[in-house]
């Protein structure tokens, strides 16, 4: 089972991430248990999926948009965003839009190329859980959250930019 960081602790991940087959066939969804399904499957069968006994969440590819799930956020306990590589930064904008534009309060999870050096930026864009990629040293990764204490900009963790926080202090 992949390692998950939640609330700055390493936890076991109880969600099952479902992926489409190589030919694009939608994955089979088990009747029980909590699953994260691809956006395409969600869009095809959202009512049936939402009625399952286990919880159902959606994962977005980096080319997808926050708007693709905006209307369904009230019934999604979790939205995962996939990072195909460290270089693809679209997921950061998606997460911020989910939080700041659509007011999403559920879990926003980073999946894919998720490792120590990207965690802090993800946190500041609204992610709150991180499915570390295979082989990543979770204890080492946890230290990343202390790397850089200050943020000049407004972000999801600090909704005011430093210049407005200074005014308060």
């Amino acid at each position: 089972m992949a390692k998950l960081i939640r609330n700055l602790r390493v936890e076991t991940d109880n969600w099952l991430l479902l992926k489409a087959g190589a030919d694009g066939t939608p994955p089979a969804v088990p009747a029980e248990g909590d699953v994260i399904v691809p956006l395409s499957l969600w869009q095809l069968r959202k009512d049936a999926l939402a009625a399952r006994s286990g919880k159902t969440a959606v994962w977005l590819e980096s080319k997808d948009s926050a708007e693709d799930v905006a209307a369904d956020l009230h019934r999604l306990p979790l939205v995962a965003i996939h990072f195909p590589s460290i270089a693809d930064g679209r997921g950061y904008s998606i997460a911020r839009l989910l939080r700041e534009r659509h007011g999403y309060k559920g879990e926003v999870r980073a999946i894919g190329a998720v490792f120590k050096d990207v965690l802090l930026g993800m946190q500041r864009c609204g992610f709150d859980t991180y499915a570390l990629r295979d082989g990543e040293d979770a204890d080492e990764a946890l230290r990343a959250f202390d790397d850089l204490a200050d943020t000049y900009q407004a972000n999801v963790v600090e909704p005011l930019p430093l210049f407005r926080r200074r005014a308060i202090i």
């Binding site: 930064g89 911020r96 802090l120 993800m122 500041r124 864009c125 943020t151 000049y152 900009q153 930019p161």
Partner: peptide, 13 residues
């Protein structure tokens, strides 16, 4: 300079 330093959203353009 301050605004762009470690901008979390625009670090992987």
């Amino acid at each position: 300079r301050q605004w762009s330093t470690f901008h979390p959203e625009f670090n992987w353009l």
